[in-house]
Amino acid sequence: MKATLKGLFFVLFPLFLGVLSLSIGRFEVDFTVQVQILLSQFMDIEQTWTDMEEAAVIQLRLPRVILAILIGGGLSIAGAALQGMFANPLVSPDILGVSAGAGFGAALGILLFGHGFSTQIIALITGMLAIGITFLVGGFKKEMPIFMMVLAGVVTSALFQAFISLIKFVADPEEKLPSITYWLMGSLGTASYYDILIGAPFIIIGMVILLVLRWRINILSLSEEEAKSLGISVAKTRWLVIFAATIITASAVSIAGIIGWVGLIIPHIARMLVGNNNRFVLPVSISIGGSYLLIIDNLARTLTPAEIPLSILTAIVGAPFFAYLLMRTGGGWK
C-alpha cells in the first residue's frame, strides 16, 4: 500500500509541477485564468481571457512543459540504465560521448537541413557512432575498468566536440553561427508541437524499451558470465539498452541541444530515494528528471528577459551537487 502511494506520488508530481509551470512566465497569466484556459481545451467555457493569454499558455508554454518533462525524464532514464548496466556510477550519455556525437550530427543536420526529421536521424547515427568509438577505444569488454570507460568517453567526446567546432568554424558567422552556438548550450526556447511530433516518439520508444528491460538491467550489472548463467542473452539485451539510451539522447540533443549533467545526477538521487534496484530506479528517474528539467527550464525562461541556456543552469546546480556526492561517498557508492 505504501509502495503504491509512493508510486502514485512519482507519477503525479511532474504532472502537478507541469500544470503549475503553465502559469509561470515572462508574460503574466493568472493561475485561475490559466486553469480555465487549460480546461477550455476539453470543455465549453466562456472565454474571459485574451487571445494572447491563451496563445501563451497553449501554444508556447504547454509544448515547452511537455518537452522539458520528456527530455529531462528521457536523459535521466538513459543515464540510470547505462549506470545500472555498467555498474558504474560515473557513466552517463554525456560521459560515454553520445551527447557530443549526437550534438555533432544535429549541428550538421541543422546546417544542411534545418530542424526536422532528417536532423533527428543524423543525430541518432552519429550518437551510435560515438558510443561505438567509445567501446572500440575502451576494448569492448563489460569488465572494462571504470577509468578506462570514462577515459574512452572523454576521448570520443573530445573528437566530436572538435567536429562541432569545425561546423561552427565553417558556418556563416552572421546567420547560422549564433544559432548553432546558442542551440548547443541547450534551450527549449522555441519548443513547438512539431518538436514533440518529431522527437517524442523516439524518446518514448527509448523509455518504453528501458522500462521493459529495467529488471534485466540488474542482471546485466553482474559480471558477463554470471549474467549469461542466469539465462539471459547478454549481448542482445545490452545492445538494446545502449540503443534505447542512444535514441533518447540523440533525440533530446537534436530538439534542445546538449543539456549536460541531468543523466549523471538524477539517477544518483533516484537511488538515494529507492535503493539500487533498477526496477524502481528507472521509473523514478523519469519522474525526478522530468521535474528537475522542468524547474530548470522554468528558471531559464523566467529569470531574465533573455533566455538562459539550459546547460549553464544544469551545470551550476549539477556540478556542486556531484561534488557533494563525491565528498559524501568518497567515490565508493556502497
Binding site: Q83, G84, A87, N88, P89, N218, S221, L222, R271, G275, N276, N277, W333, K334
Partner: peptide, 9 residues
C-alpha cells in the same frame, strides 16, 4: 558490486 542490491533482489 558498485550498486549493491538487497539479498532478496
Amino acid at each position: 558490486m558498485a550498486f549493491a542490491y538487497s539479498v532478496l533482489e
